[in-house]
Design a protein around this nucleic acid. Structure first.
Lengths: 151, 151
DNA sequence: TTGAAAGCTAACGTGAACGTTAACTTTGAG
DNA sequence: CTCAAAGTTAACGTTCACGTTAGCTTTCAA
């Protein structure tokens, strides 16, 4: 066994369908270093794992939901991968000194992500508040009109 | 007086700087029918109003905050313009029948916008909840480590 | 074993959202 | 009035995020 992890079972077409993207898109993401298949078939065909699929879905979410471009997403995905690494390293390493370091790094990565998201969220909330205010105004107009009718 | 409203005082370069975009971008938006200057100088130079500037800022917000493309934004901006029209028409028109119609239309436009935004917001909240959960996990790890130390 | 379906690489094409350049005109402070 | 700075149109260039096509190979159900 050289590569091909055991959980690398999906063909590119399957992942594409599950994630609602084209196979071209998946190969493009690989080109950019965003998602690489966990393994390959003997003949060289890509074999994706559940984690890979999850990562693709994540990328789509970040694209559509918050409008990040693939470069920004790359740094986010890299950060998340690092968090994963830290988790496995954490179990292996016995040194409390080292563990403390890893926790600090994980916290920093996570906090940075959270800050970015919170920023977006608060701006979105302001936006929504404006729309709601207008909705109230419209309702008030309707009421005033009704009142005028019944007078 | 043929056009050139009184409040059309900003030159394209000023609006560009205020909005943090290039003059090319402003001309491009005009091409797409997104924002046209409220008037022109005798020589033909664009003159923007405060409303125009506000609209440009709005467009940027919609682009960066929620990742809408300019085509989607066009329909949103059109809807907002229609809301404005309705407001002024409303004052002019005496017929309650007509007023009721306008209110209904305004409500529909506004509700559609709100629904889209709420959708985005709720998905963003889920995303943030995930990040928060991970933050808690990291904190717990740190605590466990401390506890192990003091044993 | 076979052959249609799926995958592979490599390369060119495309739409959106501007950037850049050219050649010319208008503006406005001094 | 002047003239450098800013604006104008028109056209071509560029980047991102894929789409599409070509030519060839691999997979896998029958």
């Amino acid at each position: 066994m050289i590569e091909a992890r055991a959980d690398a079972r999906y063909r590119i077409g399957e992942v594409a369908e599950q994630a609602g993207v084209s196979t071209r898109t998946l190969r493009y993401y690989e080109e950019l270093g965003l998602v690489s298949p966990a393994g390959h078939s003997p003949g060289g065909a890509r074999r994706y794992s559940d984690d890979d699929l999850a990562r693709v879905l994540r990328i789509r979410e970040l694209q559509q939901l918050v409008g990040f471009n693939l470069d920004e997403i790359k740094t986010i995905v890299a950060a998340e991968r690092r968090l994963e690494e830290i988790r496995t390293e954490f179990r292996a390493d016995r040194s409390p000194e080292r563990k403390r370091q890893m926790i600090a790094e994980a916290r920093e990565i996570n906090d940075r992500l959270r800050a970015e998201m919170r920023e977006k969220q608060s701006r979105l909330e302001t936006f929504l508040a404006d729309l709601d205010a207008r909705a109230r105004l419209i309702r008030r107009r309707a009421k005033e009109l009704d009142a005028a009718e019944h007078a």
